[in-house]
């Protein structure tokens, strides 16, 4: 047999092997984290792990409720800030802004996504935290250190701006322009067309973008860790400190081997993150892929 053909076949099989094994990484991560979580799942019931806020590793008490609450709070604040702003910005860039301006602004927004999380953290500590402590919190509560849910939310919101704006830009671009023209030709204003046609047609895409943003916010570690205070209690207001799951994992990796079950508990936290983020990501990507296919 021709050597070229043999080579071709061999290359094909090697490539296939690499492809399959890198896809299997998803499964491997799950198995790896689950395997390490088994001890804690044996010693404590799942509902206790998820709903108890008793966190005393030295007494083998592992309740994640406060950390889960912290994650949810920070994520919620981030989305509440980021969604309206990104939505307005994406509409502006795709519908109103002159081409020259978008050409200038898009790279800047991309730069925002390139800044490393730890730098966001530094900025949060230098600017956001003192600002909240001195100028915002005093209007609402007696005392806040500034290291708070709000600080985490603000920093996270800025980190997810580019993600939401980019996806929405794609979603809007997939809406056929004839549809907008149909509405405009009836005499609707640009804004009415956006409100009744563009946004309506893009609704699944907007949902997908939000879900992706949520899952991004869930997993962000260092930046949030640096500004949210890290007190293992459920926050009662946005000016309270909180302790999200990723921060918990990152902060305690050093001593997790010295306390029994601690490592298993932290790996279980990583497993929770993985499962939630996996589901959210897969769901929203499937929606986005469908949208794109329908338009082409």
């Amino acid at each position: 047999m021709n050597i070229r053909i043999v080579k071709d076949k061999a290359v094909k099989n090697i490539f296939l092997l690499l492809t399959v094994s890198s896809v299997l990484l998803v499964v491997l991560i799950f198995i790896g984290l689950y395997y390490k979580s088994v001890p804690i799942l044996h010693s404590t019931s799942l509902s206790h792990l998820l709903f108890s806020s008793e966190w005393k590793p030295s007494k083998a008490q592992f309740g994640f409720a406060a950390f889960i609450a912290g994650t949810l709070w920070v994520t919620l604040i981030a989305i509440v800030i980021a969604l309206p702003l990104s939505l307005l910005c994406a509409i502006y860039l795709s519908q109103y802004a002159p081409r020259r301006l978008t050409r200038f602004l898009n790279p800047l927004i991309d730069l925002l996504s390139g800044i490393p999380p730890v730098v966001y953290g530094v900025w949060g500590v230098l600017v956001v935290v003192p600002f909240i402590q001195e100028h915002v919190a005093p209007h609402f509560v007696e005392y806040s250190s500034g290291y708070s849910v709000l600080a985490g939310g603000v920093v996270l919101a800025i980190m997810i701006f580019p993600l939401i704006i980019n996806i929405l830009g794609e979603v809007f671009a997939n809406v056929p322009k004839e549809l907008s023209e149909a509405s405009l030709s009836i005499g609707a204003t640009q804004w009415q067309t956006i409100k009744y046609v563009l946004l309506k047609k893009s609704r699944p895409g907007i949902v997908a973008a939000v879900v992706l943003a949520i899952s991004r916010a869930f997993g962000e570690t260092i930046a949030v860790l640096m500004v949210c205070g890290n007190i293992p209690e459920s926050p009662h207001s946005v000016f309270d400190s909180c302790y999200p799951l990723p921060a918990l994992i990152a902060n305690n990796y050093g001593e997790m081997m010295s306390v029994p079950l601690y490592d298993s508990a932290l790996m279980f936290a990583a497993l929770i993150l993985f499962v939630i983020i996996f589901l959210f990501n897969a769901g929203s990507r499937i929606i986005l892929n469908r949208l794109e296919r329908r338009m082409n």
Binding site: P176, L179, E181, A182, S185, I186, Y196, V197
Partner: peptide
């Protein structure tokens, strides 16, 4: 002016 385009584009409603 009413507009009829090459392909019909009913609004998403």
């Amino acid at each position: 002016m009413g507009l009829l385009s090459q392909r019909p584009f009913p609004l998403p409603m």
